[in-house]
Design a protein around this nucleic acid. Structure first.
Lengths: 210, 210
DNA sequence: TGACATTATTATCTCTCTAATACTAATTCG
DNA sequence: CGAATTAGTATTAGAGAGATAATAATGTCA
């Protein structure tokens, strides 16, 4: 089992890798992985591997896909991949490191494929699960939230439209705190408020096919 | 490995089951399943099981999830689930049968869970993959297409809006054939035309969260 | 201190998209 | 022929999205 953990840093997605001590450069850093132990569900296994590599529990963890079979000589083996998230600012445990996705070319092909598939799985779920909020601490500013969405989607978003639809869906609740960064007006802090009921009346989106 | 195959019939989704000959009623019909053979990828295995149960190849086949582990005494065993689609009117092979989802309560709990997860996986992909077209024959009327979408989504759709966005996305091409059912005006037949490029400019959908 | 840069937040307008309603078109049934 | 039935289109009012700009609150620096 492999676990692909993402976080957001410096305006880009990063993935967690662990050092192996292997002499070949391409295998020096790999995705956290491990085998299923007795008495453990596969969800348990993924959580254990993620905890070991991260030092703390991820804020999101989900199946991303599986590969396997096709070995002519030995018993077929399947590998399941989980993908997870850690909030902005989560440090990597000693022996692990956050690698920006732009530098994933230095990894083994197997790991790169796994990462690509995990990103695709996360992007596919971004509208249906609170992915972006799992990449943020408990309270956050709306600019931070928008930045995370822009990282995940890989495209800029319109600020006014972003906030309008955010408030229309009533998916964040304001706290009475403000945070001031280096410059500019302080931003109000918000908290994720899971929606009570969702409107379902909407047409079909054919433009996403293909 | 289990394979969950769906088709549309009589205005409802149906799932393919195979007879086992078991004396217990709850196990008399189960999902098609089998083991991974040597030299076979897991995609190959799923396709083989689907073919054996259906008599023909499904028009769609994809990973749906994985369960397993949690056995204290023996080696952990994992079960891989695939979900697939067959066009309207596809007959079941001898020894297999299409069961409407409303009657899935008669199945084993394990199979019911598998089916529920497969439906969720299909509904999650309906906007991103041409699921509905895989449930139809090569040519179809727009009313048939809309009926399939309504079955998949479980809610009625607005006819004019459905056709407007369909034509705006240029995702179907008209043939020069018409088909007349029992009553009413004949309907023009259409064919699925995979989209060339998709526009991506759109805001974020917060109303789907939860 | 005061002008200016920087960031946050809101307002207004326009354009597009959506859905409700109603309409026209073509066929079968009696 | 006329009613019923199914296919497809037109019109229109409302909601949503993006551009632009206005307002607000802070830090920076001369």
């Amino acid at each position: 089992m492999d676990v692909v953990l993402f976080t957001a840093r410096d305006g880009a997605l990063h993935v967690l890798l662990v050092a192996t001590g292997s002499p070949t450069p391409r295998d020096r850093w790999t995705l956290p992985s491990g085998a299923i132990r007795r008495g453990e569900s596969i969800d348990d296994t993924a959580l254990r591997i993620a905890r070991d590599a991260l030092g703390t529990a991820p804020t999101h963890l989900d199946q991303a896909g599986m590969r396997g079979g096709a070995r002519r000589t030995a018993q077929p083996v399947v590998t399941v991949a989980y993908s997870g998230l850690a909030p902005v600012g989560t440090p990597a445990r000693a022996g692990a490191a956050w690698l920006p996705l732009s530098e994933a070319g230095a990894l083994a092909i197997r790991d790169r494929d796994e990462i690509d598939r995990s990103i695709a799985a996360i992007r596919a779920r971004i509208d249906h699960q609170p992915i972006a909020f799992r990449l943020l601490p408990d309270v956050f500013t709306l600019s931070e939230l928008q930045a995370v969405y822009e990282i995940l989607l890989g495209r800029p978003l319109h600020k006014a439209s972003f906030r309008r639809s955010l408030h229309a869906a009533a998916i964040v609740e304001a706290t009475d705190e403000w945070r001031t960064e280096r410059r500019g007006r302080p931003a109000q802090l918000f908290r994720y408020a899971p929606p009570r009921r969702r409107r379902h009346r909407r047409g079909v989106r054919f433009d996403l096919l293909g």
